[in-house]
């Protein structure tokens, strides 16, 4: 009898893992298999070689696009931080009702479809749009080109990605013990020195989370830069699409995708060593 019981308890319980099965199967079919396929294609199309990677890593055009992608991602991240930090602070400082309202506004734009938001910017910034009309009305003879520039794509990406930044920073701010701030005040800190020496370091984990998340998502952004950005300042995802749709260069597209994936994983790995990936989602 005792032996039966011990044998039963030694047997690992597989039932919980079974609950993961549907998701695991789905991911295997629609994510893992295609990803492996892409990895293989990057070496075999059009013939078995590492020529695709050589081109991607050394070609002037590709280097320029990668560089541009990083610059754009950095710019968007910085803009998101500049917009998001004060807003998160405002949310944290205001009464629960007001905070709820701001949270609702932030998440509402978060829930609106990607494409809808992108097209909304096209309408707003277009040559016949309200902003250009306003600029004309206040005296600009030839208003600046707003749409299809680095400005319009950056603006739209900031709009789309800022909620990630805000939510990450806000969740960290909420956890700060107000007694720490009181304590700092009692020790003689005020205004900017209080912010620099106490508040900013305490919110740094939220800033790091938000920045990594926005930067990584931004690296692979496709729709917004393609639809709103300048054709001369392509981002890597757009170029991959271009390669495959226009030139049917599956090998080149795959190689670029793999390089992008490797860079993203490298960033996440560095982040993980420094802060721990589990903190990334708050």
């Amino acid at each position: 009898m005792g032996a039966t019981i011990s044998r039963l308890s030694e047997k690992p319980n597989l039932w919980p893992w079974l609950l993961l099965a549907p998701l695991a199967i789905y991911l295997a079919i629609f994510f893992l298999v295609p990803l492996i396929d892409v990895a293989i294609m990057s070496f075999t199309e059009p013939r078995l070689s590492i020529a695709n990677y050589q081109k991607v890593l050394t070609g002037a055009l590709y280097q320029k696009v990668f560089l541009n992608t990083f610059m754009t991602a950095a710019l968007v991240t910085l803009a998101c931080l500049c917009v998001g930090y004060p807003l998160a602070y405002l949310m944290n400082a205001s009464k629960p009702r007001t905070a709820m309202l701001i949270l609702l506004l932030v998440t509402m734009s978060f829930w609106t479809s990607f494409l809808v938001r992108t097209y909304a910017w096209m309408v707003l910034l277009g040559n016949n749009g309200p902003i250009v009309a306003f600029l004309r009305a206040v005296g600009f003879e030839t208003p600046p080109q707003l749409l299809f520039t680095r400005f319009s794509s950056t603006l739209a990406m900031v709009h789309i990605l800022a909620p990630y930044m805000i939510m990450n920073i806000y969740s960290v701010m909420r956890k700060i013990d107000p007694v720490l701030i009181r304590s700092a005040e009692s020790l003689g800190a005020r205004g900017f020195s209080l912010f620099r020496h106490v508040y900013l370091p305490l919110t740094a984990p939220g800033i790091a989370n938000g920045c990594v998340l926005v930067f990584v998502i931004c690296l692979g952004f496709y729709v917004t830069p393609v639809l709103l950005g300048s054709p001369r300042e392509q981002m890597i995802a757009g170029l991959i699409g271009h390669q495959i749709e226009e030139f049917l260069a599956f090998g080149m597209g795959s190689a670029m995708a793999m390089v992008l994936l490797a860079i993203t994983l490298a960033i996440l790995a560095i982040y993980h060593r420094r802060f721990g990936l589990d903190k990334l989602w708050g």
Binding site: D177, V179, L180, R182, S183, A184, E185, S186, L187, G188, A189, R190, V198, P201, L202
Partner: peptide, 16 residues
């Protein structure tokens, strides 16, 4: 508070 020059030890210590 920051002008009063008073030292306070809080219940949960409030160390940075």
């Amino acid at each position: 508070p920051h002008e009063r020059n008073i030292g306070i030890v809080f219940q949960n210590y409030a160390l940075f």
